[in-house]
Amino acid sequence: MNAKINIAELPEFDMAEHLDSDQAIAEYLTIVLEENDPAELTAALGTIARARGMTEVARSSGLTREALYKALRPTSQPRFDTIMKVLSSMGLKLSVQPVSHV
Rank of each mutant, 00 (worst) to 15 (best):
K70R: 15
A58D: 05
E56N: 07
L33D: 09
K4W: 09
L94F: 12
Y28V: 12
T55V: 06
Y69V: 11
A24N: 12
A16I: 09
M15S: 11
L92Q: 10
T64W: 02
Y28N: 10
E56F: 04
E9K: 09
S95Y: 07
E34F: 07
A44K: 03
S76R: 06
S95H: 10
E17R: 10
N36E: 13
V86I: 15
V57G: 02
M54W: 00
M1P: 11
L33C: 15
E34K: 14
P98K: 12
S60V: 00
K93S: 13
E56Q: 10
I25E: 04
L45M: 13
N6C: 02
L45V: 00
T64S: 15
I7V: 04
Y28I: 14
E66F: 11
L68C: 07
D22T: 12
H101W: 10
T82K: 05
L63C: 01
L63W: 09
T82D: 02
P74S: 11
E40A: 09
S88E: 14
S95R: 13
A71R: 15
D14I: 05
L72G: 04
S89H: 03
A49S: 11
A71C: 01
Y28G: 05
E27S: 12
V86T: 07
E27A: 13
R65I: 03
L92S: 04
A26K: 10
E17F: 02
Q23N: 07
E35T: 13
V99R: 11
I25N: 02
V99W: 04
K93L: 12
T42P: 00
V32T: 14
Q77K: 14
A67T: 12
L41C: 06
L68E: 03
G53T: 03
E35H: 11
L19I: 11
E27K: 12
S76A: 15
I5Q: 07
D22W: 08
P98Y: 10
L92D: 04
N6T: 08
L33Q: 11
A44F: 01
A24S: 12
T75S: 15
F13C: 00
Q77F: 02
A51S: 10
V32S: 06
L10S: 03
A43H: 02
L10E: 06
L41I: 09
K4Q: 08
A8H: 06
K70T: 13
R79I: 06
V57M: 02
P11M: 03
